[in-house]
Amino acid sequence: MSFWQVPRISGAEGLRLFEQQRPGPWTPQLKLPSGDWVLATLPPTGDISLPAGVVYLEPGVPVLVPPSHRTSSAALLGSRTRLRWQDASRFPKAPLPSAEDVLRLVGQAEQERLELLSGVRNLA
């Protein structure tokens, strides 16, 4: 599994494009307090060109995960919640999408954003 930090705007738009195309299972994501996103994908199959603002989170780099605002995990999973969250063999429950598919769409969204900002592209 690989983790990527993507910019707020191009990350959200890339996820929207991914959802529209429905190429496979939805990528697990986490929205950071800064507005950026952390996405989980399969590891890339080869060298990959990262879109502007995308950062590969190296293995061992801590990722701060905010607490859930949903129903208490302890209520759902019982008193051994902490141990269950640490059991990585059960995550994810669905196959992850490829890094190439997700990052291509984030890059496309970033390119479109830059074209709109520079006036090269119109909304019409």
Rank of each mutant, 00 (worst) to 15 (best):
S68T: 12
R90K: 15
L114I: 05
L15K: 02
P23K: 04
L57M: 12
V63P: 05
A109L: 03
P66T: 02
P44G: 13
Q29T: 06
V61R: 00
V38Q: 00
E58S: 08
D36P: 01
S98A: 14
L116A: 12
F18C: 07
S89K: 14
Q20E: 14
A109N: 13
R104V: 11
G35K: 07
T45P: 03
L105Q: 12
A74I: 14
S2T: 11
V120K: 13
L42Y: 04
L32V: 11
E100D: 10
R8D: 08
V61Y: 13
T81P: 00
A124V: 00
A40N: 08
K93P: 08
E13T: 14
S34T: 13
G53W: 03
S98R: 15
S68P: 07
A75P: 05
V38H: 06
V63Q: 09
R82E: 13
A88V: 08
V63L: 14
A99H: 00
P66Q: 10
D36T: 10
G11M: 13
V106K: 00
Q111L: 04
W85M: 09
V106A: 00
R121C: 14
E19N: 03
I9T: 14
P51E: 14
L96H: 07
P97N: 10
T81C: 11
P66R: 15
P97G: 10
S72L: 06
L50I: 04
L17A: 11
R82T: 13
A99Y: 01
R84A: 15
V120C: 01
P7T: 07
E100Q: 09
P25T: 02
T71C: 06
R84V: 14
L103N: 04
L116V: 02
S98Y: 04
T41F: 02
S2R: 12
L103K: 05
S118P: 02
S89I: 11
T71S: 11
L76T: 07
G60S: 08
R70E: 03
P62E: 13
M1L: 05
L50W: 10
L17K: 04
P33K: 12
A88N: 05
T45W: 07
Q86M: 13
E100W: 08
S10E: 00
Q20V: 08
V54L: 07
P95H: 08
S79T: 06
P33D: 11
P23R: 07
T27C: 15
P95V: 09
Q20N: 15
A94P: 00
Q111S: 15
A99G: 00
S79G: 09
P95E: 08
P23D: 10
P62K: 00
F91L: 05
T71L: 14
P67I: 06
P33H: 12
W26T: 04
S34C: 09
G53P: 01
R90T: 11
R104N: 11
R121V: 11
A94C: 10
G11R: 11
Q108P: 10
T45H: 02
S72R: 02
R82I: 01
S73H: 09
E13A: 08
L57C: 08
W85H: 15
S98D: 03
G60F: 12
H69P: 06
S72H: 04
R84G: 06
S79R: 10
L32K: 06
P23W: 05
W26R: 01
E13D: 13
A124R: 08
